[in-house]
């Protein structure tokens, strides 16, 4: 007897729970053969607001974890993705047999997670310093997380690009609210399911799907977001910078007009972490 397959309803990871949009809105996505794949949540600015609240709740705990522990948790995420690499490769091109390119993207994503897992207890020593001063003081500079960071991922490379943007942020002890690729949201949904079982505390990474134009102004102006990391076109870049100016948030932008090689070595490393940490300098009198 033919069996009726049970299809998965895609839901977004917010505060460790899987949510639909509060508006109930969805948008359909079709697979490579043109067949209907699923309806994805069309998140609204209220969902973004709720996600920021979830990220705020998670932030003090995540920032206070030891650097070593954050590294372990990131490494655990790599383990989760490695075990489900085939499933993720299928999600990158639904309806088609996973291509070598899809597998290459998944493997690069796993390597990128491991890369930042390694950095998590090392960047402090390289970005911080003990400073020479002309008075009897110890003067040292230490890193601190900036806070809650908004991420706007590009349309292409829906797994690797998203992870490349959000990994340096959480490595630095920040929490994230990210908007996934609009045209290829399935990898982000699947990533959410892996994040939920990876020992990462609820709310550290919150993933939304939906219409970029609806959410971009709120990303730009929400005062509780302390930084933005986005791949954006010229007009979006202007909107993000103008909106961010009011609440004085850091903005790190990559232009979407020219193609970005997300596999490249320069898409990872210490300087991406530096973009999302504050440097605090302390003067301490030297004892007699």
């Amino acid at each position: 007897m033919a069996r009726l397959p049970i299809l998965k309803t895609p839901k977004c990871l917010v505060g460790g729970a899987f949510i639909r949009s509060e508006s109930g809105g969805v948008y359909p996505i079709h697979d490579a053969t043109g067949a209907f794949l699923a309806n994805f949540p069309q998140c609204t600015r209220k969902d973004l607001r709720n996600a920021v609240e979830a990220a705020a709740k998670a932030l003090p705990g995540w920032a206070a974890r030891s650097a070593y522990n954050r590294g372990q948790i990131l490494y655990r995420l790599a383990e989760m993705l490695e075990a489900r690499a085939q499933e993720m490769a299928e999600a990158l091109a639904p309806g088609r047999k996973p291509s070598a390119d899809a597998l290459r993207e998944v493997h690069a994503a796993i390597d990128r997670i491991t890369h930042y897992a390694g950095w998590s207890d090392k960047f402090q020593g390289l970005l911080g310093s003990v400073n020479p001063v002309a008075s009897p003081h110890f003067n040292f500079t230490v890193t601190e997380p900036v806070g809650i960071v908004g991420v706007l991922a590009p349309e292409e490379r829906p797994l690797l690009a998203l992870l490349s943007l959000l990994l340096p942020i959480i490595t630095g002890g920040n929490t994230v609210v990210a908007l996934a690729s609009h045209s290829q949201p399935l990898p982000a949904i699947l990533l959410g399911e892996m994040l939920a079982v990876s020992d990462l505390p609820a709310g550290v990474v919150n993933l939304l799907t939906g219409n970029r134009a609806d959410l971009l102004p709120t990303f730009a102006t929400h005062a509780h977001l302390r930084a933005l990391s986005a791949v954006a076109d010229a007009r979006e870049r202007t909107d993000l910078q103008t909106g961010a100016a009011d609440s004085v948030k850091r903005v790190t932008l990559l232009p979407s007009e020219s193609p970005i090689d997300w596999f490249a070595e320069r898409q990872q490393g210490l300087y991406h972490i530096r973009d999302f940490v504050e440097l605090k300098t302390t003067w301490h009198p030297v004892g007699a």
Binding site: P145, V146, I148, T221, H222, A223, H224, S247
Partner: peptide, 17 residues
């Protein structure tokens, strides 16, 4: 203002992010 506000602008949780 039309913009979502951060809680620390309102005399609470001054030590938080």
């Amino acid at each position: 203002t039309g913009h979502y506000q951060a809680p620390y602008s309102f005399s609470e949780a001054s030590g938080s992010y």
